[in-house]
């Protein structure tokens, strides 16, 4: 579904991503992990069209999408959530999701009423229907994360990019959010590329993990393979924690 090859991106003198390549198969949940500054969010920004890659190729459903603007990438079926939620603060939850319904998927000439009706469905799915008339600025962090999920789902994505969806959530909320992501995958048949720092969650959720360090791919494999890999332990905890 998604094939990334030889991806390079630098900001001035800083090489943020260097020769990164991996693929995501349809229906998979792939975890993208690494220490802070490893280049995970940059990869996500490159895939979602926020940044343009210096070199390399990003192919989605057999089509080159590198260099396309975000809205065209969204129309091809890729949507994302943000590490720090970026809601439309002065808009209600319902209006925010309505924007996605009207502009995301292929729904020509849909009326505002129909779009709001469909947006209600996504809000109901993430458990925010009761807060549909609440301004985003009045929602708590968990609700903001759910709103971002609803907004992304409303664009009818084939591939969902989750950027640290569990950051700042307490264990109870994280567990509910994980259930929600699983049921979204099951109900909408989406594929997920997921950046996460909460190892317990990502190891339980992902079928495959890609580890980045210093902008380069370190390891790729199943969660079990990755968690036992010396290079990963060294990258996260330092050399003295590696058991030979």
């Amino acid at each position: 579904m998604l094939e990334i090859q030889g991806l390079h991106k630098s900001f001035g003198g800083l090489q943020a991503v260097s020769d990164v390549g991996f693929s995501v198969q349809e229906g998979e949940i792939v975890g993208l992990i690494g220490p802070n500054g490893a280049g995970k969010t940059t990869v996500m920004n490159l895939v979602s069209g926020t940044f343009k890659a210096d070199r390399g190729s990003i192919r989605f459903m057999g089509e080159e999408i590198s260099g396309l603007p975000s809205n065209k990438i969204c129309h091809r079926g890729i949507c994302r959530t943000y590490q720090i939620p970026r809601p439309f603060y002065a808009m209600t939850a319902l209006a925010s999701v309505t924007v996605s319904v009207l502009n995301g998927g292929h729904r020509p000439n849909m009326s505002l009423f129909d779009a709001s009706f469909e947006a209600s469905y996504y809000l109901e799915f993430v458990g925010l229907f009761a807060k549909r008339d609440t301004l985003a600025r009045d929602l708590n962090l968990y609700e903001l994360r759910m709103l971002e999920l609803a907004r992304a789902l409303a664009t009818v994505p084939k591939l969902l990019l989750l950027d640290e969806a569990m950051a700042g959530l307490n264990p109870g909320e994280a567990s509910r959010a994980l259930d929600m992501i699983w049921s979204a995958q099951e109900q909408f048949g989406i594929t997920i590329l997921w950046i996460e720092h909460v190892m317990k969650v990502i190891m339980a959720a992902a079928q495959r993990i890609v580890v980045l360090q210093h902008g380069q791919k370190l390891v790729e494999g199943t969660p079990k393979e990755v968690i036992n890999d010396e290079r990963v332990i060294k990258a996260y905890l330092g050399g003295r924690h590696v058991v030979h």
């Binding site: 926020t50 603007p69 975000s70 809205n71 969204c74 949507c79 439309f88 924007v99 995301g104 907004r151």
Partner: peptide, 8 residues
């Protein structure tokens, strides 16, 4: 930026 990401 977010609007663009949502297909606008």
């Amino acid at each position: 930026d977010v609007a663009r990401m949502m297909g606008v």
